[in-house]
């Protein structure tokens, strides 16, 4: 088990009248090999939850007497958890990660993490080279350039390289495709899928975009108002349409289109997830009849 969470709660502004339960008795398991999606509205608690995983938000021990939070074998409910090792094992790509670039050259920026881990020059250099290549950029061309003069998409890749250069066991992605155009989104999602296969077997992706979660993840936790409304496989989602719509969230758009067609009398299976599944389903009905 890479991440184990049992009855974790978190209160914003405790002891004031503005106190708000941001996490309400959360339990979750993320296993090695999972591409785990967490979906919910802005303010549903998903960001608070993942910042616990990286100890950027500490467990409020006072309100969490019986809680369990274990990440890569490190007990975060301990009085003094081993945060340094934890951050080595858990990499986190924040929303709009390109805004955190700071160094003079791409090489230095990507090397910031490995340096903080105390690695030597040679090891750092090797990791930087590998990480830049992994995100699909040409190291020799880009290494000595300033990160600020790159294009938006390149900047984001450099920032992601900065995280994977630390070779984390668990990679957390917070709205990784926000603000990109459809083409850029597609490329980045493909990159994450490849990363998971080749480099970092456990990925947790926080998103408000049901399509990308349904496309990449094998499990999807639906969050609403600080609670987990359920953990489903993408294919199960269509059976929970009422629940998801009821929380004001979108269904995967292919599922939703199929449902809409079925509702109007087109006899197609509404559980399809990808465009080609939907097309095949429709072809079975229509070309069969035509020919």
């Amino acid at each position: 088990m890479q991440i184990e969470i049992r009855s974790l709660s978190y209160i914003y502004n405790p002891k004031t009248p503005f106190g708000k339960l941001a996490l309400d008795d959360i339990s979750l398991d993320v296993e090695e090999g999972d591409f785990f999606g967490i979906i919910g509205h802005t303010g549903s608690g998903k960001s608070t939850l993942v910042s616990h995983i990286n100890a950027l938000t500490r467990v409020q021990l006072k309100y969490n007497k019986n809680a369990v939070l274990k990440v890569c074998g490190i007990d975060l409910c301990a009085k003094k958890p081993d945060v340094k090792t934890l951050r080595e094992k858990v990499g986190m790509v924040f929303q709009y990660p390109e805004y955190q670039l700071f160094a003079d050259t791409v090489r230095q920026d990507v090397g910031f993490g490995p340096k903080n881990l105390g690695l030597g020059e040679a090891e750092t250099e090797e990791r930087v080279r590998a990480a830049v290549a992994r995100v699909g950029l040409d190291y020799d061309e880009i290494a000595e350039r300033s990160p600020f003069e790159l294009s938006g998409g390149q900047k984001r890749r450099v920032a992601i390289a900065g995280v994977i250069a630390m070779r984390p066991e668990v990679l957390i992605l917070d709205e990784p495709t926000a603000g990109l155009d459809p083409e850029g989104k597609k490329e980045l999602l493909a990159l994450f899928k490849r990363l998971q296969r080749e480099a970092c077997p456990t990925v947790v992706m926080v998103s408000h975009n049901m399509d990308e979660v349904a496309e990449c993840c094998n499990k999807v936790a639906v969050m609403n108002e600080g609670k987990i409304a359920g953990v489903f496989s993408p294919r199960e989602l269509f059976t929970r349409r009422e629940l998801i719509k009821g929380m004001g969230m979108e269904m995967p758009s292919v599922t939703e289109l199929a449902y809409y067609l079925a509702e109007g009398g087109v006899p197609v299976d509404p559980s399809c997830l990808t465009e080609s599944e939907l097309v095949d389903g429709l072809l079975n009905i229509y070309s069969g009849g035509d020919k």
Binding site: P182, S276, D290
Partner: peptide, 19 residues
């Protein structure tokens, strides 16, 4: 490098395959 709406893409695929 642009996308059509999902329903348009589905219709396009269907037509391509003879519907």
């Amino acid at each position: 490098g642009l996308d059509a709406p999902l329903c348009t893409r589905v219709a396009y695929e269907l037509r391509k395959r003879g519907v």
